[in-house]
């Protein structure tokens, strides 16, 4: 399949996602996965800022602790923080050259074996909502059209976050953001419940929850709440389709 065909397919997939009762967190996960695929990266995370400008990882291609730590420590330094503060794309960063600029970030990326990174903003009318952060095991240089593609994926994430059709003075956006942040906590609690009940890792638990949600057209938050209050049993998820 040509890159153009694959691109068209991804955008149709995303457009299809953005209907009716779609799931914001699942959408953000899909965007991370597709951005890794289309922009020759190996890992991605989508980070949102709350009302106090604290950054929260909402979705990532892997739940591996070392990757998550890379996002977390960028609360203090790194391309993510720069991208968030300036609202500008910070791309094609060669990680071999950032030791002096971001010492802790450099050490952490070197430990995981990443060679380059990109950070692309989620923007809405001059406000920066968050950042898509990509990591590559090779030294990857994105072309202008790659960067434009990455920005288009971020713009879809922004639209997805708005959810409601009209945003009155940012109020709905704030409601939506708080809702997504709480759903993220709910999902973590449910991952714990499922992993203990089924004797699987918390990462595997998330995969099962997501598959179950998609199969049954349920929101991830609904599946998570069901696992915690017992209305959805662990066996239902582990049994598969």
């Amino acid at each position: 399949m040509s890159r153009e065909q694959r691109l068209a397919e991804v955008f149709i997939e995303l457009a299809d996602t953005l209907v009716d009762n779609y799931d914001v967190i699942d959408l953000l996960h899909t965007l991370c996965e597709r951005s890794v695929e289309l922009l020759q990266a190996d890992a991605a995370g989508l980070i949102l800022a709350d009302q106090r400008s604290e950054l929260h990882v909402m979705a990532s291609t892997s739940e591996e602790a070392k990757l998550l730590e890379l996002f977390v420590l960028q609360a203090d330094e790194g391309p993510c923080l720069d991208c968030y503060s300036t609202g500008e794309q910070v791309v094609n960063i060669d990680l071999d050259e950032v030791e002096a600029r971001w010492p802790r970030f450099h050490a952490a990326t070197a430990a995981v074996g990443f060679r380059s990174t990109h950070a692309i903003p989620l923007r809405l009318r001059g406000q920066v909502l968050g950042v898509l952060n990509l990591f590559c095991s090779d030294r990857v240089t994105l072309s202008d059209s790659d960067v434009a593609l990455g920005q288009a994926l971020c713009d879809i994430a922004t639209v997805g976050l708005l959810q409601e059709r009209t945003v009155r003075r940012g109020e709905v956006l704030a409601e939506q953001l708080q809702s997504a942040l709480n759903t993220r906590i709910l999902i973590e609690q449910a991952k714990g419940v499922l992993s203990e009940r089924s004797r699987i890792s918390v990462d595997d638990a998330f995969g099962l929850m997501r598959a179950h949600a998609r199969r049954n057209h349920l929101q991830l938050g609904v599946v998570a709440a069901g696992l915690i209050d017992g209305t959805i049993t662990a066996a239902t998820l582990t049994a598969g389709p």
């Binding site: 993220r184 906590i185 973590e188 609690q189 419940v193 992993s195 915690i228």
Partner: peptide, 14 residues
Amino acid sequence: NHRVIHQATGIISV
């Protein structure tokens, strides 16, 4: 608000 805290909470409840 670290995510392991919420995961641990779920594990402990079981």
